[in-house]
Design a protein around this nucleic acid. Sequence first.
DNA 1: TATTGTTATACTCTATAACTATA
DNA 2: TATAGTTATAGAGTATAACAATA
Lengths: 145, 145
Amino acid sequence: MAFVVSKLGYSVSQALADGLRPLGIEPPHLGLLRILQSTAGESQRAIGDSLDIAPNRMVTLVDQLEAIGALERRRHPSDRRAWTLMLTPDGSDLLAQAMTIAFAVEDQLCRNLDPAERKQLLELLGRLHDPIGGVPAGVHPGLSR
Amino acid sequence: MAFVVSKLGYSVSQALADGLRPLGIEPPHLGLLRILQSTAGESQRAIGDSLDIAPNRMVTLVDQLEAIGALERRRHPSDRRAWTLMLTPDGSDLLAQAMTIAFAVEDQLCRNLDPAERKQLLELLGRLHDPIGGVPAGVHPGLSR
DNA sequence: TATTGTTATACTCTATAACTATA
DNA sequence: TATAGTTATAGAGTATAACAATA
């Protein structure tokens, strides 16, 4: 079971990375774009903390997304040390395209299962014991390395 | 589904790496030890090809396993350019210990499922479509990077 | 001329810790 | 004194290609 899950997980991550390549981003950028959609006006540090991404890595990721116009750094209203990260309209478009690719990976992965089987598989996977504790739901542990 | 599988796969790989650390080896070494158990007298190159490990990486992996006495390089009987890799008795012991750890990871992962559920989960996972084609069964695609 | 194993080199990635400007 | 963001630097890991010995 462990081997199958590890192998499939690796393949899926690779497939997502391959799919995102034409957009000029990688899976961590997608993770960041997704959280920017739901958080408005949070500081770079707070966002990094919630994804478990170190401050120096955040600089690189945010620099790259800013360079392609996907987000803007704005002054924090009450703390002049901090930046507030805002998704731009171009960033929303990019996120939508990236999510389309992610769903295509999902569809490919599950193409041999009918909806009832998918639901059952998800339920069983959810009952596997994740050996890495303390990772918030929706956060990929690979982001922190 | 893709996210869950990727996240679990990452966690499982990390758990195995953590478990193997006291033995002084990493998951790729375990992959190599396992194949050495079933192949007798094959050349370093042939074994690397079957695991999709580049020749220069094989040198490092084999050097490390030789340094801890887990395998021996012997002259190939008919080709004096090539080495034949042989598991030593110490290597067999190491492999047994490593497999014990791997099975402990497996048990932890599946501890909330009864045997029937495990079988069912394995069956469903086996029907997921691996997006990386051409990887032989039993070979982890992460070995090739 | 091609192949086995090895080494060298350049490149990328990461991780720690310094640094600045604010608080 | 502590914190947000940034930069510097050193270490690890990776990948390409060169290399010597042999086929």
